[in-house]
Design a binder for these strands. Sequence first.
RNA 1: CCGCUUUGCUGAACGGUCGCGCGAAAGGAUGCCGAAAGGUGCUUUCGUGAGGAAAGUCCGGGCUUCACAGGGCAAGGUAGCUGAUAACGUCAGCCGCGGGUAACCGCCGGGAAAGUGCAACAGAAAUAAACCGCCGCAAGGUAAGGAUGGAAAGGCGAGGUAAGAGCUCACCCACUCAUAUGGUAACAUAUGUUUGCUGUAAACCCUACCCGAAGCAACACCGUAUGGAGACAGUUUGCCCGACGCAUGUCUUCAGGUGGCACGGCGCAAGCCGGAGCCUGCCGGCGACGGCAGGCAAAGAUAGAUGACCGUUCACGACAGAACCCGGCUUAUAGGCAAAACGGUAAA
RNA 2: GCCGGUGUGUCGGAAUGGCAGACGAGAUAGACUCAAAAUCUAUUAUCCGCAAGGGUGUGUGGGUUCAAGUCCCACCACCGGCA
Length: 150
Amino acid sequence: MFCYPVFFGANEMKIVSIKENHLFQKAYASGKRASGRLVAVYALQDRCANRERKRNPEKKFINRVGLTVSKKIGGAVVRSRVRRIFRTAYRALMPDLKTGYLLVLVARAPAAEAKSTEALRELRYLFKKLELLAAAPEAHNQQKEHQDQE
RNA sequence: CCGCUUUGCUGAACGGUCGCGCGAAAGGAUGCCGAAAGGUGCUUUCGUGAGGAAAGUCCGGGCUUCACAGGGCAAGGUAGCUGAUAACGUCAGCCGCGGGUAACCGCCGGGAAAGUGCAACAGAAAUAAACCGCCGCAAGGUAAGGAUGGAAAGGCGAGGUAAGAGCUCACCCACUCAUAUGGUAACAUAUGUUUGCUGUAAACCCUACCCGAAGCAACACCGUAUGGAGACAGUUUGCCCGACGCAUGUCUUCAGGUGGCACGGCGCAAGCCGGAGCCUGCCGGCGACGGCAGGCAAAGAUAGAUGACCGUUCACGACAGAACCCGGCUUAUAGGCAAAACGGUAAA
RNA sequence: GCCGGUGUGUCGGAAUGGCAGACGAGAUAGACUCAAAAUCUAUUAUCCGCAAGGGUGUGUGGGUUCAAGUCCCACCACCGGCA
């Protein structure tokens, strides 16, 4: 029954993205907010988590993520760069996160100049602030067990 | 060698680790939907994956839908000539004007002698002979002179006259028409001749030519399902003879659904990348370009794929990201390379 | 992606091609008042200058014109629409 952690390494997890505008609106309106210099994070308990869990192939809770980079930040090249940097930073942090949340990342103006290491550091700090980080690897495993029981 | 002008090309390279889109092949203790076929996912490997401007959306096409017998008007566009082209407001060559010692560069470059409008201020007067002045007894004549202005009824000299005036003459300038020569033509040169005319057409306009409209968020095809929920108010207002009903107002709630609107909406697939394509050679042409032959071809997403980190090298990396597809124009751009032409200096 | 619109003092908003900033709001100063409000008067784009005056100014850069906020071309910024 413990085949999943072996079968799916942390890096094989796909990012599930938010596409619908209403989910963004809900996150802005009622989500918990933490903002740094480069990025602001909105987090909301995902009430559709159960359904999403059923839908995805591995039958486990996931986070859905929306990444917003406005036109104010720069031209198309700059915006693409910012998006990629935050996507990789999120991917690196993903295994340590609690699941079943709706996350929206909003890039702020200084992000145009940011390096990827800075982005990673800030994102980790903000997730910690929102208490989204599963504290230790053991906890991470416990959560998985919990999921498997269900 | 230095300076300058023009044109063309290029737009860092290599390796490692992790990661993404698309395509192909293979795989399984294989998820979900399905009766099945299959669809959608997962894993591995291989291949492949932004620009010269992808940009601005300023022109021109293709393509799509709607409209359409034919013709005309209106509206809009273009504006030296000849050519190139699918087409163009683009490009090439030439003509004219202007600038530069030159190579070369710039020009919305038709018509003001068809008509209308406008020309502030200044000035006597602004397209026209009213005023001062000059001459004359007067009637009247006159456009020499009158501090302006962007522009003032060709210029200068002589004759002439009451005073004057292209009124006459010589020379010069501008311009119309005609003829001759050269050129396909724009036009150039020469001769003769008419006239002496303000500017403005990026004011109306005239002339010649071109033009149906909208755009992939256009649109085509296939199949399926549904009519947010609750509470209160209420026929006061609109539709209606009236009733039913619909629209309507207020509040709550939605992470049950939708998510811009909506008597219309949603899903899947297509449009979706082989095209007026690129490269090489030969031929024709001053050239834009055309013809023939051979070869090369894999971005194709749908919240939107090329990145991050490390190492090495160098010229130390600018502007910048495809979204139906082409041809141009315009704008942004660190540098690097090549060719041609001109000027200067030196040498021969 | 496509289509369309707008840029004028601090703000709103005028201006046949002819003295840029009418008009309104606001601000500042003065008068009135014990004080304030209201009212009245003046000033109010910017630079140089003691002053008289002069230069630059209609998003930016060119062009047409004697003359451009206005006409033409290119760019910049902002706003709106579409299924």
